[in-house]
């Protein structure tokens, strides 16, 4: 039922709620659309029952804006944190596969690239390899733990902060891992950094992807702060 007054309590409430929420736009639009649907349904029910101000009553029963905004914000924060962790799950194997494919095509064995390498460099390259898988495994475990903790009623805001923290820590470790490998390679032989263009592109892509995950995780922490 359309509201005939100058301002519509439901539209005003949704606008005020929207103004207080920060988070991924699709998740935010989805939450707000559902809230608006619920308010419209309630207003229709009150109108059918002959209530003089059905839309105002629907808003009054929906709940205090500050309390609900906090609950909705926590949902958005956890959504962003889960997005960061899922990105780690996808990014690590995809970037690894891209790197391995390009390396095989353009370089051959990394440890033999540009000549034999000392033992310490081989160890750095090995650690660099498995750190990615460890971070990916931890991201998967964190998502699983988040699912179980949601069932146990753990506060959503705390879950969002935990997901954001783990996502930030994971992406920071992955970035640091890249920097360590680059530094080790440069200190071994600077000319080794002048790889074929496709390999350089994948290397740059790794920095961009892991940097993007760090931004997502940081946003999750921001969305669940306070």
């Amino acid at each position: 039922m359309a509201h005939t007054g100058v301002s519509d309590p439901i539209a005003d409430y949704i606008a005020a709620l929207s103004a207080r929420l920060r988070g991924p736009s699709s998740a935010k639009a989805d939450l707000l659309a559902e809230a608006r649907d619920g308010l419209d349904d309630a207003a229709e029910a009150y109108a059918a029952a002959g209530h003089p101000d059905p839309r105002g009553r629907a808003v009054a029963e929906f709940g205090d804006l500050t309390c609900l905004a906090r609950a909705y914000q926590a949902e958005l924060g956890v959504a962003e944190g889960a997005r960061a962790l899922k990105s780690v799950l996808v990014a690590v194997p995809v970037m690894h596969a891209l790197w391995q494919t390009n390396q095989l095509v353009w370089i051959g064995s990394w440890s033999e690239y540009g000549g034999p390498v000392p033992e310490w460099y081989r160890a750095v390259a090995d650690v660099n390899d498995w750190i990615g898988w460890v971070v990916m495994g931890l991201a998967g475990l964190a998502l699983l733990a988040g699912r179980l903790l949601s069932r146990r009623g753990v506060e959503t805001r705390r879950l969002g902060r935990a997901a954001g923290f783990l996502g930030a820590a994971g992406s920071f470790v992955l970035l640091l891992n890249l920097v360590v490998l680059l530094t080790a390679t440069a200190s071994l032989d600077m000319s080794r950094l002048l790889m074929p263009l496709p390999c350089l592109a994948v290397g740059a892509g790794m920095f961009i992807v892991h940097g993007r995950i760090l931004v997502l995780a940081h946003r999750s922490l921001k969305f669940t702060a306070g």
């Binding site: 939450l31 619920g38 929906f62 709940g63 609950a71 909705y72 956890v78 699912r147 949601s150």
Partner: peptide, 18 residues
Amino acid sequence: LPTGTVYPALRRLERGGL
């Protein structure tokens, strides 16, 4: 119950796979 509180609770149960 404030009706608006039901929606985040539903999302939480969905996140928990229930």
